[in-house]
Protein backbone atom coordinates (compact mmCIF):
# COMPACT_ATOMS: atom_id res chain seq x y z
CA UNK A 1 0.00 0.00 0.00
CA UNK A 2 2.78 2.42 0.84
CA UNK A 3 4.78 1.33 -2.19
CA UNK A 4 2.02 2.50 -4.52
CA UNK A 5 2.18 5.95 -3.03
CA UNK A 6 5.98 6.03 -3.10
CA UNK A 7 6.26 8.11 -6.24
CA UNK A 8 9.43 10.15 -6.56
CA UNK A 9 9.05 13.67 -5.25
CA UNK A 10 9.73 16.80 -7.24
CA UNK A 11 13.46 16.94 -6.60
CA UNK A 12 13.99 13.59 -4.91
CA UNK A 13 16.10 12.43 -7.87
CA UNK A 14 18.41 15.43 -7.88
CA UNK A 15 22.12 14.96 -7.31
CA UNK A 16 23.34 16.84 -4.26
CA UNK A 17 26.70 18.41 -5.20
CA UNK A 18 27.73 19.94 -1.87
CA UNK A 19 27.02 17.00 0.44
CA UNK A 20 28.52 14.66 -2.16
CA UNK A 21 31.79 16.58 -2.22
CA UNK A 22 31.85 16.63 1.58
CA UNK A 23 31.19 12.88 1.62
CA UNK A 24 34.03 12.18 -0.82
CA UNK A 25 36.41 14.41 1.17
CA UNK A 26 35.45 12.62 4.39
CA UNK A 27 36.04 9.27 2.71
CA UNK A 28 39.49 10.40 1.52
CA UNK A 29 40.33 11.61 5.03
CA UNK A 30 39.39 8.18 6.41
CA UNK A 31 41.55 6.45 3.81
CA UNK A 32 44.49 8.71 4.75
CA UNK A 33 43.88 7.92 8.41
CA UNK A 34 44.03 4.21 7.55
CA UNK A 35 47.30 4.80 5.70
CA UNK A 36 48.89 6.46 8.72
CA UNK A 37 47.54 3.80 11.09
CA UNK A 38 49.18 1.25 8.82
CA UNK A 39 52.51 3.05 8.65
CA UNK A 40 52.46 3.61 12.42
CA UNK A 41 52.13 -0.14 12.90
CA UNK A 42 48.76 0.07 14.67
CA UNK A 43 47.18 -1.87 11.81
CA UNK A 44 49.21 -4.91 10.93
CA UNK A 45 50.71 -5.45 7.49
CA UNK A 46 52.24 -2.04 6.77
CA UNK A 47 50.91 1.10 5.13
CA UNK A 48 50.39 -0.06 1.55
CA UNK A 49 48.46 -3.30 2.26
CA UNK A 50 46.20 -1.41 4.65
CA UNK A 51 45.58 1.25 2.04
CA UNK A 52 44.88 -1.38 -0.59
CA UNK A 53 42.46 -3.26 1.66
CA UNK A 54 40.39 -0.21 2.49
CA UNK A 55 40.36 1.06 -1.11
CA UNK A 56 39.18 -2.30 -2.42
CA UNK A 57 36.49 -2.52 0.28
CA UNK A 58 35.27 0.88 -0.91
CA UNK A 59 35.36 -0.31 -4.52
CA UNK A 60 33.37 -3.41 -3.57
CA UNK A 61 30.76 -1.28 -1.81
CA UNK A 62 30.48 1.02 -4.84
CA UNK A 63 29.92 -2.02 -7.07
CA UNK A 64 27.16 -3.25 -4.74
CA UNK A 65 25.45 0.15 -4.74
CA UNK A 66 25.63 0.30 -8.54
CA UNK A 67 24.37 -3.27 -8.86
CA UNK A 68 21.30 -2.72 -6.64
CA UNK A 69 20.01 -0.18 -9.17
CA UNK A 70 19.87 -2.86 -11.87
CA UNK A 71 17.69 -5.27 -9.91
CA UNK A 72 14.07 -4.99 -11.08
CA UNK A 73 11.88 -4.91 -7.98
CA UNK A 74 8.23 -3.99 -7.91
CA UNK A 75 7.36 -4.52 -4.25
CA UNK A 76 3.74 -5.00 -3.20
CA UNK A 77 2.15 -3.74 -6.47
CA UNK A 78 4.13 -6.37 -8.40
CA UNK A 79 2.51 -9.10 -6.33
CA UNK A 80 -0.87 -8.00 -7.70
CA UNK A 81 0.38 -7.67 -11.27
CA UNK A 82 0.01 -3.89 -10.94
CA UNK A 83 3.64 -2.98 -11.58
CA UNK A 84 6.53 -4.68 -13.35
CA UNK A 85 9.39 -6.27 -11.43
CA UNK A 86 9.96 -8.93 -8.83
CA UNK A 87 7.46 -8.96 -5.99
CA UNK A 88 9.75 -8.58 -3.00
CA UNK A 89 11.95 -6.00 -1.28
CA UNK A 90 14.87 -4.58 -3.24
CA UNK A 91 17.37 -4.60 -0.38
CA UNK A 92 16.75 -8.22 0.53
CA UNK A 93 16.60 -9.53 -3.05
CA UNK A 94 19.88 -7.81 -3.93
CA UNK A 95 21.40 -9.13 -0.71
CA UNK A 96 20.14 -12.62 -1.49
CA UNK A 97 21.89 -12.55 -4.87
CA UNK A 98 25.00 -10.98 -3.39
CA UNK A 99 25.27 -13.59 -0.66
CA UNK A 100 24.71 -16.43 -3.13
CA UNK A 101 27.67 -14.92 -4.97
CA UNK A 102 29.61 -14.61 -1.72
CA UNK A 103 29.00 -18.33 -1.16
CA UNK A 104 30.66 -19.12 -4.50
CA UNK A 105 33.41 -16.56 -4.01
CA UNK A 106 34.30 -17.75 -0.51
CA UNK A 107 34.40 -21.32 -1.76
CA UNK A 108 36.87 -20.38 -4.51
CA UNK A 109 38.91 -18.08 -2.24
CA UNK A 110 41.92 -20.39 -2.17
CA UNK A 111 42.16 -20.46 -5.97
CA UNK A 112 43.29 -16.86 -6.18
CA UNK A 113 41.65 -13.44 -6.27
CA UNK A 114 40.66 -13.51 -9.96
CA UNK A 115 38.84 -16.84 -9.82
CA UNK A 116 37.19 -15.99 -6.52
CA UNK A 117 35.85 -12.67 -7.79
CA UNK A 118 34.64 -14.17 -11.06
CA UNK A 119 33.04 -17.05 -9.19
CA UNK A 120 31.31 -14.64 -6.82
CA UNK A 121 30.00 -12.54 -9.68
CA UNK A 122 28.73 -15.58 -11.59
CA UNK A 123 27.14 -16.99 -8.44
CA UNK A 124 25.13 -13.82 -7.90
CA UNK A 125 24.17 -13.61 -11.58
CA UNK A 126 23.12 -17.26 -11.65
CA UNK A 127 20.83 -16.81 -8.68
CA UNK A 128 19.16 -13.82 -10.34
CA UNK A 129 18.97 -15.55 -13.74
CA UNK A 130 17.04 -18.47 -12.26
CA UNK A 131 14.83 -16.31 -10.04
CA UNK A 132 13.92 -13.90 -12.85
CA UNK A 133 13.17 -16.80 -15.21
CA UNK A 134 10.83 -18.39 -12.67
CA UNK A 135 9.10 -15.02 -12.17
CA UNK A 136 8.34 -14.84 -15.88
CA UNK A 137 7.27 -18.47 -16.03
CA UNK A 138 4.92 -17.81 -13.15
CA UNK A 139 3.40 -14.77 -14.90
CA UNK A 140 3.15 -16.30 -18.36
CA UNK A 141 2.23 -19.91 -17.65
CA UNK A 142 0.64 -19.54 -14.23
CA UNK A 143 -1.39 -16.40 -14.67
CA UNK A 144 -1.58 -15.87 -18.44
CA UNK A 145 -0.07 -12.40 -18.29
CA UNK A 146 2.59 -11.25 -20.79
CA UNK A 147 5.50 -9.11 -19.61
CA UNK A 148 5.18 -5.37 -20.12
CA UNK A 149 7.04 -2.35 -18.86
CA UNK A 150 5.23 0.75 -17.73
CA UNK A 151 8.13 3.17 -17.96
CA UNK A 152 9.25 2.87 -21.59
CA UNK A 153 7.42 2.45 -24.90
CA UNK A 154 9.96 0.05 -26.39
CA UNK A 155 12.24 -2.51 -24.80
CA UNK A 156 15.71 -0.97 -25.38
CA UNK A 157 17.27 -4.38 -26.16
CA UNK A 158 14.65 -6.24 -28.18
CA UNK A 159 12.68 -3.28 -29.49
CA UNK A 160 9.36 -4.89 -28.48
CA UNK A 161 6.51 -2.44 -28.04
CA UNK A 162 5.30 -2.43 -24.45
CA UNK A 163 2.18 -0.27 -24.13
CA UNK A 164 -0.22 -2.64 -25.93
CA UNK A 165 0.69 -5.52 -23.62
CA UNK A 166 -0.08 -3.58 -20.49
CA UNK A 167 -3.44 -4.53 -19.01
CA UNK A 168 -5.93 -1.86 -18.07
CA UNK A 169 -5.46 0.05 -14.87
CA UNK A 170 -1.94 -1.22 -14.20
CA UNK A 171 1.57 0.09 -14.68
CA UNK A 172 2.73 -3.09 -16.41
CA UNK A 173 3.67 -6.53 -15.10
CA UNK A 174 6.24 -9.28 -15.33
CA UNK A 175 9.84 -8.86 -16.41
CA UNK A 176 10.47 -7.57 -19.95
CA UNK A 177 13.82 -8.69 -21.35
CA UNK A 178 15.58 -5.47 -20.35
CA UNK A 179 14.53 -6.03 -16.72
CA UNK A 180 15.71 -9.63 -16.92
CA UNK A 181 19.13 -8.54 -18.17
CA UNK A 182 19.17 -5.85 -15.48
CA UNK A 183 18.52 -8.46 -12.81
CA UNK A 184 21.39 -10.62 -14.02
CA UNK A 185 23.76 -7.63 -14.17
CA UNK A 186 22.64 -6.60 -10.68
CA UNK A 187 23.43 -10.06 -9.34
CA UNK A 188 26.79 -9.94 -11.13
CA UNK A 189 27.83 -6.64 -9.51
CA UNK A 190 26.41 -7.65 -6.13
CA UNK A 191 28.27 -10.94 -6.06
CA UNK A 192 31.46 -9.27 -7.27
CA UNK A 193 31.32 -6.46 -4.70
CA UNK A 194 30.40 -8.74 -1.81
CA UNK A 195 33.18 -11.18 -2.63
CA UNK A 196 35.72 -8.37 -2.98
CA UNK A 197 34.87 -7.06 0.50
CA UNK A 198 35.01 -10.57 1.95
CA UNK A 199 38.34 -11.55 0.36
CA UNK A 200 40.04 -8.29 1.32
CA UNK A 201 38.89 -8.57 4.93
CA UNK A 202 39.82 -12.26 5.04
CA UNK A 203 43.38 -11.60 3.86
CA UNK A 204 43.66 -8.67 6.23
CA UNK A 205 42.53 -10.71 9.25
CA UNK A 206 44.78 -13.60 8.29
CA UNK A 207 47.69 -11.17 8.70
CA UNK A 208 46.20 -9.18 11.57
CA UNK A 209 45.03 -11.93 13.92
CA UNK A 210 48.46 -13.58 14.41
CA UNK A 211 49.93 -10.12 15.05
CA UNK A 212 47.32 -9.68 17.77
CA UNK A 213 48.59 -12.74 19.58
CA UNK A 214 46.34 -15.43 18.13
CA UNK A 215 48.40 -18.53 17.45
CA UNK A 216 47.50 -21.99 16.26
CA UNK A 217 47.60 -22.60 12.52
CA UNK A 218 44.32 -23.41 10.83
CA UNK A 219 42.03 -22.43 13.66
CA UNK A 220 42.92 -18.83 12.92
CA UNK A 221 41.70 -19.20 9.38
CA UNK A 222 38.30 -20.28 10.70
CA UNK A 223 38.17 -17.24 12.96
CA UNK A 224 39.18 -14.96 10.08
CA UNK A 225 36.49 -16.55 7.90
CA UNK A 226 33.89 -16.00 10.61
CA UNK A 227 34.88 -12.36 11.13
CA UNK A 228 35.20 -11.53 7.42
CA UNK A 229 31.93 -13.35 6.67
CA UNK A 230 29.82 -11.51 9.23
CA UNK A 231 31.38 -8.17 8.31
CA UNK A 232 30.84 -8.75 4.60
CA UNK A 233 27.19 -9.62 5.28
CA UNK A 234 26.75 -6.62 7.58
CA UNK A 235 28.31 -4.19 5.13
CA UNK A 236 26.33 -5.68 2.25
CA UNK A 237 23.11 -5.06 4.16
CA UNK A 238 24.09 -1.49 5.00
CA UNK A 239 24.94 -0.63 1.37
CA UNK A 240 21.89 -2.45 -0.03
CA UNK A 241 19.50 -0.68 2.36
CA UNK A 242 21.05 2.72 1.62
CA UNK A 243 20.69 2.03 -2.12
CA UNK A 244 17.10 0.93 -1.55
CA UNK A 245 16.45 4.25 0.18
CA UNK A 246 17.92 5.95 -2.88
CA UNK A 247 15.44 4.35 -5.27
CA UNK A 248 12.57 4.63 -2.75
CA UNK A 249 11.83 0.93 -2.79
CA UNK A 250 10.94 0.05 -6.38
CA UNK A 251 12.69 0.19 -9.74
CA UNK A 252 12.10 -1.50 -13.10
CA UNK A 253 15.72 -1.93 -14.12
CA UNK A 254 18.32 0.02 -16.09
CA UNK A 255 15.67 1.68 -18.30
CA UNK A 256 13.81 3.17 -15.36
CA UNK A 257 14.28 6.94 -14.92
CA UNK A 258 15.16 6.25 -11.27
CA UNK A 259 18.26 4.42 -12.49
CA UNK A 260 19.84 7.82 -13.17
CA UNK A 261 20.05 8.36 -9.42
CA UNK A 262 22.85 5.84 -9.07
CA UNK A 263 25.72 8.39 -8.67
CA UNK A 264 24.22 9.44 -5.34
CA UNK A 265 24.13 5.88 -4.11
CA UNK A 266 27.74 5.34 -5.15
CA UNK A 267 28.86 8.44 -3.24
CA UNK A 268 26.85 7.24 -0.25
CA UNK A 269 28.39 3.77 -0.50
CA UNK A 270 31.91 5.19 -0.70
CA UNK A 271 31.58 7.09 2.56
CA UNK A 272 29.55 4.40 4.34
CA UNK A 273 32.04 1.69 3.41
CA UNK A 274 35.00 3.90 4.32
CA UNK A 275 33.56 4.31 7.82
CA UNK A 276 32.45 0.68 8.24
CA UNK A 277 35.59 -0.70 6.58
CA UNK A 278 37.95 1.31 8.75
CA UNK A 279 36.12 0.31 11.94
CA UNK A 280 36.09 -3.33 10.78
CA UNK A 281 39.84 -3.21 10.19
CA UNK A 282 40.43 -1.63 13.59
CA UNK A 283 39.11 -4.84 15.15
CA UNK A 284 42.60 -6.28 14.81
CA UNK A 285 44.37 -3.02 15.73
CA UNK A 286 47.30 -3.19 18.09
CA UNK A 287 46.90 -0.78 20.97
Amino acid sequence: MSAIAAKPGANAGAFQPVPSVIAIVLAIILVVVAYFLGSAGILAGGAMPVLQTLCLIILGAALIAFGVHFVPVGGAPAAMGQAPGIATGVAMLATGAGLAGLFGGAWAAELGLGVALASGAIGGALMMAITCLMVNISYVFGMGIPAASGKVLKDPITGDLQAAYKSQGTEGHGLPFISYVGGVIGGLFGGLGGTLIYIELLNFYNVGLPALGFVGAEGINMLAVGLAGIFAIGMFLVIAVLSAYNITGTIEGPHDPKFKRFPRAIVAAILASAVCGLVAMLVVALF
Binding site: S2, A5, A6, G89, V90, A91, M92, L227, I230, F231, I233, G234, M235, F236, L237, V238, V241, L242, A244, Y245, I247, T248, G249, C276, V279, A280, L282, V283
Partner: peptide, 23 residues
Protein backbone atom coordinates in the same frame (compact mmCIF):
# COMPACT_ATOMS: atom_id res chain seq x y z
CA UNK B 1 7.53 6.71 5.15
CA UNK B 2 11.07 5.84 4.20
CA UNK B 3 10.17 4.28 0.85
CA UNK B 4 11.01 0.75 1.78
CA UNK B 5 9.77 -1.54 4.51
CA UNK B 6 10.21 -1.35 8.26
CA UNK B 7 12.40 -4.52 8.30
CA UNK B 8 15.14 -2.82 6.30
CA UNK B 9 15.69 -0.41 9.19
CA UNK B 10 16.38 -3.38 11.47
CA UNK B 11 18.86 -4.79 8.97
CA UNK B 12 20.63 -1.45 8.64
CA UNK B 13 20.80 -1.12 12.43
CA UNK B 14 22.42 -4.49 12.92
CA UNK B 15 24.63 -4.28 9.83
CA UNK B 16 26.25 -1.19 11.24
CA UNK B 17 25.86 -2.35 14.84
CA UNK B 18 27.88 -5.53 14.36
CA UNK B 19 30.84 -3.53 13.08
CA UNK B 20 30.71 -1.11 16.01
CA UNK B 21 30.25 -3.95 18.48
CA UNK B 22 33.27 -5.98 17.42
CA UNK B 23 35.56 -2.98 17.47
Amino acid sequence: GIGTGVPSAGMLAFGSGVIALLF
